[in-house]
Design a protein around this nucleic acid. Structure first.
Lengths: 235, 235
DNA sequence: CGCACAGTTGACAATAGTCAAACGATGTGG
DNA sequence: CCACATCGTTTGACTATTGTCAACTGTGCG
């Protein structure tokens, strides 16, 4: 606990964290015993909304989810993307504190909150396991605060691409499940700035694009320097 | 768990969260049994640095702490301010994931990490308690992401002032323990923009200033609308 | 009293946002 | 099978918010 974690991943409540290794889309995960009810959600549909009464906890079986918060006038901040194996449904005061929507066709497993809490209370080590991954989520949240508050557009894009690559086994080719608008709302930019910055990186030969959703990382060193804020000319 | 929390506060690992009521600067807190070693730190001094081997967990007894992360070129993002009763020392891979410095004269209680982990393992309910406050911290982190990614300078300042007021019992007068540069690095702005925005709010009569560190909230409704992003003219 | 430092203000620059148009892929109907 | 409609992406011209730089002010401490 509070120490190095092994490979594999689970996202409990909005941030990806590394835990025990497991296969990508199969049985219950996260040390989570028992099966929930299967549920299918169409692309673009809402799993739950911010402020809604928090009845359930979900596990992503297949597909990608976006979590976000809104300001009164509609401005949106995406706080995280969820992949198979991740859990969602974090609540405060009995209400979901963010909204969740399907970015792709989605398969979920649903657990009632009562059952989830009973399991956390009764299964030995489960509370501690969830604590561990929650700490890791907090760490991700702090990295994202550094990104949102202090990085330039190019540095944000570089960080994002490396982050996505890492989740895909650091392959040369990164597949983006989300559109430009989602990337923008995740990085605190506009979709136009995301486009322009990607084009700029293409022009410099740092990346190449097979298509809009498939990016090749041609100069990983350059991207890493950008992401770390080491370059005098951050764009 | 995952439900409404009572008054009082604890900051475990960087974000303030509401837990069981307690007096402000007295005995051990957070359901945390036993006493740690007392330690005094001068204003501006470092408690620990990012990346340093994480030997200890600390509890703030008196004073204010800033937690921050740095980019390679020195840009700084403050991820939270800690007040009496808060805990700090979150680590990943055996190393602190942020730096901590004293904003004021500071009194801490220090617990060795081994002892802390033993307590978490052995004391019934402690892991769950820490899980609860950690969830609340995560919520605070998500609010801060919304602020950093999507709010204007005026909206950030309004949110910050209301946040500080809330921690001081929602008094009309807010006392700021931190300087303009710290506020700037917390909100993702520069100190000049913080000054200019505060002056603008003064000009509009929304706030008044007894001194640089003592702000009077004259129109709380206006501040709340600003913080929520409800105003057509966000500045 | 004056030195040092934090805070404030203003002129100007730059990064990112806005608006609008064009382009490209994808999917449907003729 | 092609034409067309639609939606997401890309690009460019222009705007605006915030950052930079520098000077000035106020406050507190020796």
């Amino acid at each position: 606990m509070y120490s190095q974690m092994s490979s594999g991943s689970i996202r409990t409540f909005g941030f990806r964290t590394a835990v025990a290794p497991r296969s990508a889309t199969q049985e219950p995960v996260g040390g989570f015993p028992g099966r929930g009810l299967a549920e299918s959600i169409d692309i673009g549909e809402t799993v739950f909304s911010e402020g809604e009464s928090a009845e359930n906890v979900y596990e992503v079986i297949q597909g990608v989810v976006r979590l976000y918060k809104l300001l009164a006038d509609g401005r949106r901040q995406i706080t995280g993307f969820l992949f198979p194996g991740d859990l969602l449904g974090f609540a405060h005061g009995g209400h979901y504190i963010y909204a969740a929507e399907a970015i792709t066709e989605l398969r979920l497993r649903r657990y009632s909150r009562a059952r989830f809490e009973r399991m956390v209370d009764e299964v030995p080590g489960l509370a501690q396991h969830i604590l561990k991954v929650t700490f890791a989520e907090l760490r991700g949240a702090q990295d994202q605060m550094l990104l949102l508050g202090r990085k330039s557009a190019a540095e944000k894009i570089a960080s994002f691409l490396l982050n996505m690559a890492e989740r895909q086994g650091n392959a040369e080719e990164v597949r983006l499940a989300m559109g430009r608008a989602d990337i923008a709302d995740y990085l605190g930019l506009t979709k136009e700035t995301v486009c322009k910055t990607l084009s700029e990186l293409k022009r410099e030969g740092v990346i190449a694009a097979q298509s809009a959703s498939c990016i090749e990382l041609r100069d990983r060193g350059q991207l890493e320097e950008l992401a770390a804020g080491e370059l005098s000319h951050p764009c």
